[in-house]
């Protein structure tokens, strides 16, 4: 019907997409895999093939890598166990039909998300400041709790970063959940309530199962976002991660190894480990969510 042009045309039209993607995305992805099997220090030195040595060293000898992995996982757990439920709660409240100023609240909760990482880092430097900071001064002091040395003491660094994450991400996740809630026909809930279900039962047996696609989306974004965390902790506690490297994330570690010490091969190995972790976690999460549908 359309002759020969029709056969080549599709490839022609997607070629800009193809080319840009292949050069600046696919090629580096492959190049990075190759580089991770080499030892390359400095940008102009010839790389030397060392097989899996980079990976072996990462897992067996590199305490800082393990530390960064632990820190990042700590943050990811915090983000999944604290930020996502909080966002869901917020969405349920925002969804209540009698709410006034819904648009205003939505915008309000969205603002942290579009604030630059540098600004967020500096603001939270003040929030967590030991003597004059907002939390110690306004929240803890009235309750008679001693000053917490948020950014100075190793065990408080990650909780501080999680609080920052909650501030930044709860709103946008709540907005995603709200869209999901809007897609649930109100008749379903009405029917359940007429049948005598409590609010909690309606939530657990009607709302939550129907939210599953959005939940999968939010969790995937949360996992990817957590393991890519860079700007906020870097500004908050510095690229070394503050006291005892307690705030060093995997991305910060990759950056310091790759661009401070110019160990490109090693940095690529870190990058691939990170990619594999994210991929595995995302798949596990999707499978788990699907499994819940079966019962």
């Amino acid at each position: 019907m359309f002759g020969r042009g029709r056969k080549i045309a599709p490839y022609l039209f997607i070629s800009p997409f193809f080319i840009g993607y292949a050069i600046f995305f696919l090629y580096p992805v492959i190049q990075s895999l190759q580089l991770s099997f080499y030892r390359q220090v400095g940008l102009n030195k010839a790389p030397r093939f060392i097989g899996f040595d980079n990976y072996v060293r990462l897992v067996t000898k590199d305490d800082l890598f393990i530390k960064a992995l632990t820190n990042t996982t700590y943050y990811a757990l915090g983000s999944i166990l604290i930020i996502v439920p909080l966002a869901l709660l917020l969405a349920l409240i925002l969804h209540s039909p009698k709410l006034r100023l819904r648009e205003f609240f939505r915008f309000l909760y969205f603002t942290p998300n579009i604030t630059a990482g540098v600004v967020v880092g500096i603001i939270f430097g003040l929030v967590f400041e030991e003597q004059y900071g907002l939390i110690n001064n306004l929240l803890l002091a009235p309750l008679g709790i001693d000053n917490v040395r948020w950014l100075r003491e190793a065990r408080w660094v990650m909780p501080a970063v999680i609080l920052l994450g909650a501030w930044k991400w709860t709103g946008i996740n709540a907005i995603y959940f709200m869209v999901g809630l809007q897609n649930i026909p109100p008749e379903l809930k009405e029917a359940a309530r007429v049948d005598g279900a409590t609010r909690w039962q309606v939530f657990w047996h009607v709302t939550l199962p129907l939210l599953r696609p959005i939940l999968a989306f939010v969790l995937t974004i949360a996992i990817i976002g957590s393991y890519n965390l860079f700007a906020e902790p870097a500004i908050l506690v510095g690229l070394e991660g503050g006291p005892n490297n307690a705030g060093m994330t995997m991305t910060m570690y990759l950056y310091t190894r790759g661009f401070r010490e110019l160990k490109m091969g090693y940095a690529s190995a870190i990058g691939y480990s990170l990619a594999v972790i994210i991929l595995v976690l995302s798949v596990v999460q999707l499978v788990l969510i699907r499994a819940f549908r079966e019962d």
């Binding site: 050069i23 190049q31 940095a267």
Partner: peptide, 26 residues
């Protein structure tokens, strides 16, 4: 078509920082 598209989409999982080093060299 589908193979091409799926090939692109799965790579969305790849964290941007993974390619930081080779991208810089490129």
């Amino acid at each position: 078509k589908t193979a091409l598209f799926l090939g692109f989409i799965t790579l969305i999982m790849v964290p941007g920082v993974l390619t930081l080093a080779p991208r810089f060299v490129l």
